[in-house]
């Protein structure tokens, strides 16, 4: 398994500077979350790491390899609904394998196990429109895990879910991650989600996007959902909220 290192990434769209001199690393197997107000460039940063987009300057490395073009070591879990409506759950999950020219026959059993792991055993023949939002994101996760990536890039994967499903998916993700250990870069704008999941939380400021803070989360794993109700958890969330407030005050607006 390999980690991610982002060095001095700068990116503008037209006249708008979106990311300025962003640098951070996520060690191999580390779970890093990135929080920041919307529009601060989180999605853009993640797309650059994945190689879907190119930075104007700076570089991204997975392990030692310099990323240029869609990175084979990464798998991206998108923010929006990103399943092919014409594919069943099983066929959606194998799309990444298909495109990466992995032999489906030899990996078929593993794919089935993965669908079990993400809680979709028995739903292989369903079409996306027959699934709830939570289940669709499970399929997205299975599709990403199926290509056995070193790095999982997750862009607000639970943002569209209701609060309860969201909490379920957070514990599920940690359970799956403990089974399929990956380097994870996970974007969210929910602070409790960021803290609950992460080994480290990066706080992004905006206009242009910079890394404003880098906080190590001290809680041991496995983590129960009840952790969110403890005082230490609340204090850490408070502290990060303070940073973000400062960032927003400096850069104006939400």
């Amino acid at each position: 398994m390999r980690g991610v290192s982002v060095q001095s990434i700068t990116k503008s769209f037209g006249d708008g500077l979106v990311l300025r001199d962003i640098s951070f690393t996520a060690g191999a197997g580390e779970f890093v979350t990135i929080v920041g107000p919307s529009g601060c460039g989180k999605t853009t940063l993640l797309r650059i790491i994945d190689g879907l987009e190119e930075g104007d300057s700076g570089e991204v490395r997975i392990g030692d390899r310099l990323v240029s073009g869609p990175a084979r070591e990464c798998a991206f879990v998108f923010q929006a609904d990103s399943l092919m409506p014409w594919r069943t759950v099983f066929d959606n999950a194998k799309l990444g394998m298909e495109l990466r020219k992995m032999d489906i026959q030899t990996h078929k059993d593993r794919l089935k196990e993965l669908l079990q792991l993400v809680g979709l055993g028995g739903f292989e023949k369903y079409y996306p429109r027959q699934l709830s939002g939570g289940m669709r994101q499970r399929v997205n996760l299975a599709r990403a895990l199926a290509v056995d990536p070193d790095v999982l890039l997750m862009d607000e994967p639970f943002a569209a879910l209701d609060a309860q499903t969201r909490e379920i998916m957070q514990t599920e993700l940690l359970r799956i991650w403990s089974d399929q250990r990956k380097t994870v870069v996970f974007i969210t704008h929910q602070l409790d989600e960021a803290v609950y999941l992460a080994d480290r939380v990066l706080v992004m400021g905006r206009k242009p996007g910079v890394i404003a803070d880098d906080i190590t989360v001290p809680f041991s794993r496995p983590r129960e959902l009840s952790l969110k109700r403890t005082g230490e958890f609340g204090q850490l969330v408070e502290r990060i909220w303070g940073t973000i407030e400062g960032v927003i005050r400096e850069t104006g607006g939400i």
């Binding site: 409506p85 809680g119 055993g121 429109r129 027959q130 939002g133 939570g134 289940m135 499903t165 359970r175």
Partner: peptide, 16 residues
């Protein structure tokens, strides 16, 4: 269109 009825598995339960 993608709308339809929903099924949600219970937390942590593997549906067989």
């Amino acid at each position: 269109s993608q709308s339809s009825s929903h099924v949600e598995p219970a937390p942590g339960v593997v549906i067989g």
